[in-house]
Write a protein that binds this DNA or RNA. Structure first.
Lengths: 190, 190
DNA sequence: GATAAATTTTGACATAGGTCAAATGCCGTG
DNA sequence: CACGGCATTTGACCTATGTCAAAATTTATC
């Protein structure tokens, strides 16, 4: 099993020992998904989290018939349903692949067990939540202080890969603006 | 030392043993702050986190001369500078008391050591970050899908105590609307 | 309990970004 | 290499919320 990028990314967040690495490897199953596949469906228990080795996904809500993208994940990232992992509730969020994806699946149950029993992974879990929290915090600040155009610029800076690999509509809804507005902003830009 | 509400709140997030409780108690110092005291100043290392036993605080950014409230904390909560705790950087966030406050101070260094060595606290740390992440996630969703008025209603529902104890301007900036707009909304409400 | 200071309400007007619909461009499939 | 379907751009118009400033109300101070 070649979890190269996943392990690399975990070690960047919180270095883990080779035993922990092995425990993790023993807990996952490799899986492959085509482009546009619904990895996690709202209203259904998936009971799994996925470490992404290759490809990109987006998470989104469906609110009043509209899709609102809440995050993009790619090589080294992890996706799961917050509602399931945190609160043992049915997911309200969808995750779909934007490209062909190679991922490692772990059951939510096993992941929680690892958190409870392995202090390295408990700390890794804490750190990735810190990081995500900070990303949201930052985007919250940007939303309150920057114009739509400046937010797009900031997004391009922060997530250049996503900008290239995801289509406009998804980025617009992530930024909380309309597809037409975003398109206009790009047009206005010299 | 009576850390009643703090300990209660920790146990709600992730139950800890009495040994862990004692380790925590041995690591903190009780302190008292008057109303309107700057607990954490931007641009200065405070090197401390505070468990709040009594009273309320708000955290905010100062952007272009404007204060943007990012969160309120009260009995049982913990406040700290994300930049210091996570990234060993000088804080960009202020925290000030809105009431007289009784808190328990712990050095950031000691808190991180506890995370590294005590699996219960590592998991507690993970859980509170999950919860905060979820709060932000939710407010992000509300900002994208609800009108200013509906967001205020949602806020009242979710944080009734804060609504009563914090002044309008702080709530307005938390919700990302103007003081005048919020005041109008309240007026319009039958 | 009067005066000052802070907070909240209200008014008149401005504007960023939304809405809806049409037009154009692009790219994979047969 | 042409067709069909997405994806993007553009146009005309609209509305929720912002801005700035003054008035009213509440709260704190002596």
């Amino acid at each position: 099993m070649n979890m190269k990028r996943v392990i690399e990314t975990i070690n960047e967040a919180y270095p883990i020992s080779s035993e922990t690495e092995q425990a993790l490897k023993d807990s996952v199953t490799e899986c492959h998904f085509p482009k546009r596949y619904q990895l996690i469906k709202a209203g259904a228990y998936s009971k799994c989290a996925y470490f992404i080795e290759e490809g990109m996904t987006r998470s989104f809500w469906l609110v009043n018939g509209e899709e609102i993208t809440t995050s993009f994940s790619y090589e080294g990232g992890i996706v799961f349903s917050m509602d399931e992992l945190y609160y043992n509730k049915v997911s309200e969020e969808f995750v779909e692949t934007l490209e062909d994806v190679v991922a490692y699946r772990i059951s939510v149950e096993r992941l929680l067990e690892l958190f409870r029993t392995n202090i390295e992974l408990a700390n890794w879990g804490r750190i990735i939540h810190q990081n995500e929290y900070r990303r949201l915090h930052r985007s919250h600040k940007e939303r309150l202080t920057l114009s739509a155009g400046d937010r797009y610029e900031a997004f391009k800076q922060q997530f250049p890969q996503v900008c290239q690999r995801a289509q406009l509509g998804y980025i617009a809804s992530y930024l909380g603006i309309t597809l037409s507005t975003l398109s206009r902003l790009r047009g206005a830009k010299k």
